[in-house]
Design a protein around this nucleic acid. Structure first.
Lengths: 200, 200
DNA sequence: CACGAAACTTGCGTGCACGCAAGTTTGCGT
DNA sequence: ACGCAAACTTGCGTGCACGCAAGTTTCGTG
């Protein structure tokens, strides 16, 4: 039941993402204003803000699009213990930058304001993941808390990873594998996830 | 070693908090602009933003001032197991609205944008608490993650509490005790805190 | 098919966050 | 006591977020 409405919304969202990314790669992120993105996507500047809350969100979304939903779906579908289901879903979805993601991530790691926006993108996990966890354990409020914690941990992991970059003098170094910091950040949460799963 | 510099900074910060709160109570938060607060505190509007990142931060800060540091200090000083040290410190520091806090909290719970700001104030726990936890377990990166999780949980607890309010029709109801939602939100984290404390 | 409600877009206006580059104050070493 | 360096304040300019109130498109229903 995907009406025309929904398809148009997705199309606009994607158009904005694409436009934002293209312009950012062409001119550098600092030389892209919201108005430019909106114009390139063929909508009004005001509409941009109906889709994205901040200027960089659209650029970052070109990499992170739909990631939350896929993670949530994976957790809901997995038959592994909750703790590992979550960790594996998160790691898996972050591990494939997906071709064009490579240069985009380089752009993001290079640029301070984009780094912040990228780290914050973990926050969008909270809602979907809460639903997924709630479906597995039967305690909505615990699920909410745990989802918030996972999101926070992912954010910390991303920050750690981003911090690794750019350390070597003035030379910009694409950071190492994201997997390790992510697992490290999620590890301390495992006991909480496990405890929540057991009937008591 | 508190030089003149530091004392002046605290004075300005407090002046801004007080001015913000006073004006908000007088006129209602929507009729207070940043310029008004700055003027009332005797500094330039630009300086306001050197102290507070958002418009409502100053108002909320009148209630939450220094809370983070006190919680962090309590955790660092406590000899109880980490999990209960954290919970008790958080609960204790949130439980005393402190006289004038009463009406201020009513103002905050009443007003949507202030509610968001209040919930977000939990975020400021992250840094100080991370240090305090790091001092107790000996693993900085785990401490960072756990602090982020505690902050997230506190935020969820506050949101829960704020949600309770205003439920009864159009009648504004001062929400019940904050303690219960807070404890409930922190409970799922206990296993993680406990596990981090044990040598392995 | 027609039509009313609900969703979405858009222009406009307002207040705000924040970088930058002076100007001013504080602190410290000699 | 002096003067330099670092910290803090301020004015200014720019781009942005977002409420609001029309205007437009989509959708379910009779």
């Amino acid at each position: 039941m995907t009406g025309l409405r929904e398809r148009k919304k997705q199309a606009t969202r994607e158009a904005l993402r694409e436009a934002a990314l293209r312009l950012a790669l062409e001119r550098g992120p600092d030389n892209v204003r919201v108005d430019d993105i909106a114009e390139a996507a063929g909508v009004s500047p005001r509409t941009y803000n109906n889709y994205f809350a901040g200027r960089d969100h659209a650029i970052v979304a070109a990499v992170t699009a739909e990631r939350e939903s896929r993670i949530a779906a994976a957790v809901a579908a997995s038959s592994a213990p909750l703790a590992s289901a979550v960790v594996e879903a998160v790691v898996a979805e972050h591990h494939n930058p997906g071709e064009r993601g490579r240069d985009t991530l380089l752009l993001i790691t290079t640029h301070p304001s984009l780094r912040a926006a990228y780290a914050d993108s973990a926050e969008s996990l909270e809602g979907p993941l809460a639903d997924a966890i709630a479906a597995r354990i039967d305690d909505t409020s615990t699920a909410t808390v745990l989802a918030a914690c996972v999101a926070a941990a992912v954010r910390v992991g991303l920050q750690q990873w981003l911090g690794q970059a750019q350390k070597v003098g003035a030379l910009v170094v694409p950071p190492g594998p994201l997997e390790e910091p992510l697992r490290a950040a999620l590890a301390p949460l495992a006991p909480a996830l496990t405890a929540a799963e057991k009937p008591a």
